[in-house]
Design a protein around this nucleic acid. Sequence first.
DNA 1: TATTGTTATACTCTATAACTATA
DNA 2: TATAGTTATAGAGTATAACAATA
Lengths: 201, 201
Amino acid sequence: MTDRRPTRRATAAAPIPPTTTGPEGDGPIDYGLLGESVGFLLKRAQMAVFADFIATFATADLRPAQFSVLVIVGRNPGLKQSQVSAALSIKRTNFVPLLDSLEDRGLVKRKMAATDRRSHALHLTAKGTALLKELTALWEQHERRIADKLGADGRSQLLALLNGLDGFGGGDGLDEADLAEMPPPAAKPRGRRPAKTPESV
Amino acid sequence: MTDRRPTRRATAAAPIPPTTTGPEGDGPIDYGLLGESVGFLLKRAQMAVFADFIATFATADLRPAQFSVLVIVGRNPGLKQSQVSAALSIKRTNFVPLLDSLEDRGLVKRKMAATDRRSHALHLTAKGTALLKELTALWEQHERRIADKLGADGRSQLLALLNGLDGFGGGDGLDEADLAEMPPPAAKPRGRRPAKTPESV
DNA sequence: TATTGTTATACTCTATAACTATA
DNA sequence: TATAGTTATAGAGTATAACAATA
C-alpha cells in the first residue's frame, strides 16, 4: 500500500492527521487509519483501564464484572437475576456462575421472590455491603489515576462521550425481549440494530 | 435454601439517591457509580462499536484484528511478524494463526528476510492491497455512523481522549522487551506499569 | 405457551510454557 | 545465550440449545 487518503470527510470535520508516517523503511510504525479508528482506540483504552482496575482490585480478588454486580445489587436490592444480568448486558446463562462466585463468598444472597416462585431476588449480605464500601474507596483511587492522566475535565468529557455511544451498534445483547426496563446509565435515546450485539460487563 | 422476603417487587421502581455524582435522571435501575466508571463505559462503548464494525465488515468476512493487521502491513511493508504483533499488542504466539488466516486467503505474504533467516518480512499481496482499498470505504462508513451519533466534533474529541489514555495501566502487553520502536498512534509520553497488561487488537 | 433459572457445550480471545532454527 | 517463529494448551469471556419448575 502507499497513500490512501479519503478526500471527502463524512459529516464534516475530522481532518486526518499526518498519521505519523515513517519513511517506510525503519523508524516508528505508521498506524495509518487505526490512529483515528474509534473502535481500535476504544479497545486499547479499555484494556489499559481494565488492567489498572484489576491491579487495584487485586487485593479484594474481584473482577470488573463482579464489582458491577455488587454495585447494581447494592443500589437496587430485590432485583431479579434476569434484571441484573440484563442491566449489565450479561446473558442470564453466563450470569449464573458469576453470581455463584459472589454468593459462595457470602457477598450476595439469592432470596425467594414471594410473587413469582421462579425468580430469585438478589440482595447484598452484611458482608457484601461492608465490602462494597471498601471497594468504593479502591474505585475512587482507580478513577483518580485516570483523571491524573486525562485531567478532571478530560475524564468528564470522556464519560459524556462514552455515554453518548450508548445504544450504538444495536441494543445491548439482551437475551430475548427484556428490552423493557433497561435505560442507559445516563439516559439517551436508542437506535437501530445493525448487528448481533454481544455482552458487556 | 433461602428464607422469605415478601417485600421487593420486580420492576424496581425505587431509585436510590446517587452518591458521588448524578447525571442521574431517572429510570428503573440505578447504575450508581457505574455511570461514571470509565472502564465500565469504555467496555460498553467498545462492544457497541465493534458490533457495528463486525456488521459492516461482514461482507468481507473480516474481524477487527485482521483489518488492523492489513492496515499496519499495508503502511509498513517489510516489518517482521514480531514488530506487527507488538504494534497491535498481540502476543506473537497468538499472532501466528491470525496471520495464517490472512496468508491462507492470499492477502498477506511471509517473505524471507535476507538479513535474518529467523524472521519473516510481511507484505500485502496485490489482492491484499486491492481489498484494503475497498475495506477503507467500509471503514469510512463505519466511522461516519459513529460521527452521526457523537457529532464530528464529539468523535474527534473522543479520539484525542482515547489517545490520551495510551500507556495507562502499564505498557501494551508486549512480550519480552520489544518496547523499543512502538510509539502510540498519536504520540504521548509513557507512564508506569501497575499491572500485567493484556493484549489489544 | 412463555418465562426464570439452570446445565451443558462450543467457540473466541488471551495467556504461558516449551520447542526449532537461527543468531 | 538470546531471539523469531511456532506448537500445544489452558483459561477467561461469550454464544446457543435444551431442560425443569413455574407462570
